[in-house]
Amino acid sequence: MGESIVITSGKGGVGKTTTTANIGTALALQDKKVCLIDTDIGLRNLDVILGLENRIIFDIVDVIEGQCKLQAALVKDKRFDCLHLLPAAQSSDKNEVTPEGIQSLVEQLKPDYDYILIDCPAGIEQGYKNAVAGADKAVVVTTPEKSSVRDADRIIGLLEQENLESTHLVINRIRKHMMDNGDMLAVDDIVSTLSIDLLGVIMDDEDVIRASHHGNPVAFQPDTKASIGYRNIARRILGESVPLMSFDEDKGFLFKMKKLLGMK
């Protein structure tokens, strides 16, 4: 029996969809059976980031309306057999989707998968309620900006009323030098304000944008800071205890030599 995790944030553009795609990819890399559900009806993105846009035939609204079977709408990933996507509808009426509909979908998927990740739309209206209805756990994504932390706080307050097993925090797009200068909220301040457990931190990295552009989630690349962050998150979801990555920049060969010689 799998567990379902909703990925939400309140504010738009903080990286919910990217986080969903990458955690899903990182879990699949660990040989877990993963199903991603895009509930952002009318503004579907998850398929694009995964590079699966061309393979979509049916979507979530078709399934809920009973136009097709659930299995027929699932899109298999081009890299893994164990990663599937249930895409959002791009044109259909979003009022067709109800919390009960999503809930029953998730229940149908649970026996076949280890993890079901639900990508939530921005906002706190119907779309959010639909996405959360099917979830056992929640991951709240925020960036180190005041507005996004404020919205995360709002969302956490709403999630508290939902009877979830747990709510965890992912801090996305961290810029080391801006945090050091005090131009961005520090990780500790965010965690202390939101007072929920930190699941992981993701560095701001051009590779994330590049990877999304090519429809190949960054978590595939073994060596970028962002992909390590996502892989660590996946390992923590699996129950491993992984220390938080250090933000320090790699200072290059000379720095390492100096450090080795005790000059720094």
């Binding site: 404020r150 919205d151 706080d153 709002r154 956490i156 307050g157 709403l158 508290e160 007072s195």
Partner: peptide, 8 residues
């Protein structure tokens, strides 16, 4: 015993 969050 509660943290009062944004919007609450």
């Amino acid at each position: 015993v509660k943290t009062i969050r944004s919007g609450q």
